[in-house]
Amino acid sequence: MSTQKTVRQEAGTVEENALRIETAKAEQIVDALNADLANAYVLYHQLHKHHWNVAGAEFLDIHVFLQEVYEDVEDAADELAERLQALGGVPHASMTTLAEEATVEPEDENVYDIRTSLSNDLEMMGDMIESYREHVELVNGLGDYATGEMLREQLEDLEEHAHHVEHYLEDDTLVLESATK
């Protein structure tokens, strides 16, 4: 095994790109996308945590739903990272950097009831939706319409997931509360 290490590109730098987006503009876009990437991984891990820990009468439906959502979030993160690289940037990849650069606040390590967990997911999704909207406007203003389209598609998926979480949180349910409460 070779011990020689060659850094091909320093983290935090943006090089010229084949997409012909000026480096100064690409730097702004890369910063925005890296924030979205960090947020996606925070949400991914929180959703995964809730997928692992969900219990109760609605276990299976919520368990399956959360898996679908975290898989969509992971796919979105991959797409963000690949676009970052195409723009000449370096996608955030270490857990430390992702946690530091995320603009959303993750839930702590405790296991909560599913209503609390889903409420926390919905709050994070809402913060990310607002960020996506700002970033769509930013990238379009910089003339990067392809990134804008990618973000719009991810925004639509995130909004749909948030809407479904909102339905899970409605008080109309077939599950009756215990008479001992």
Rank of each mutant, 00 (worst) to 15 (best):
R20S: 13
M1V: 01
H135R: 05
T173C: 05
D157M: 13
H135S: 07
Q154S: 15
M124E: 07
E177F: 02
L122Q: 12
A32H: 04
D171V: 03
E105G: 03
D172P: 00
M95T: 10
L158Q: 12
D75P: 05
L169R: 07
L43G: 05
E79Y: 12
H51A: 05
D36G: 00
A38H: 03
E16S: 09
L138W: 09
H63G: 01
V165Q: 08
H92A: 07
Q85F: 10
D144M: 02
T23K: 06
G141M: 06
A32K: 02
A86V: 01
T116F: 14
L158F: 09
E109G: 11
A57N: 04
A162S: 08
E101I: 08
G56V: 01
L80W: 04
Q154E: 12
M124G: 06
E134C: 02
A77I: 11
E27A: 11
G12N: 12
V14H: 03
T23L: 01
A146V: 11
E134F: 02
E170P: 04
T97C: 03
L176D: 15
N110K: 14
T180F: 02
Q28C: 04
S2A: 13
T3F: 12
E156N: 15
M150R: 12
M95G: 11
D127S: 14
V14N: 00
A55R: 11
M125N: 00
K49P: 02
V111T: 15
L37A: 03
N120M: 10
E134K: 08
R133A: 14
E10F: 02
E74P: 04
A102G: 05
S119D: 13
A24H: 03
H63D: 00
D108K: 10
H164S: 15
E166G: 10
I114R: 01
V136N: 06
Y145V: 01
V90C: 00
N120S: 07
D127K: 09
D127Y: 05
G141L: 09
Y132Q: 10
L80A: 00
D157V: 13
D108Y: 14
L158A: 08
P106M: 05
T97K: 08
G56N: 02
S117K: 01
F59A: 04
M124R: 10
G56I: 05
L43Q: 08
E109H: 14
N17C: 04
H161E: 13
G141A: 07
P91F: 08
S2M: 07
E159Q: 14
D31E: 09
E79F: 11
E22F: 07
G88A: 00
E79A: 13
L33A: 00
V69H: 10
A93Q: 05
T97S: 06
D78N: 10
L80P: 06
S119P: 08
Y112W: 04
A77S: 11
D144K: 07
A57E: 06
T103N: 11
R133K: 15
Y70D: 14
D144G: 05
L19Q: 08
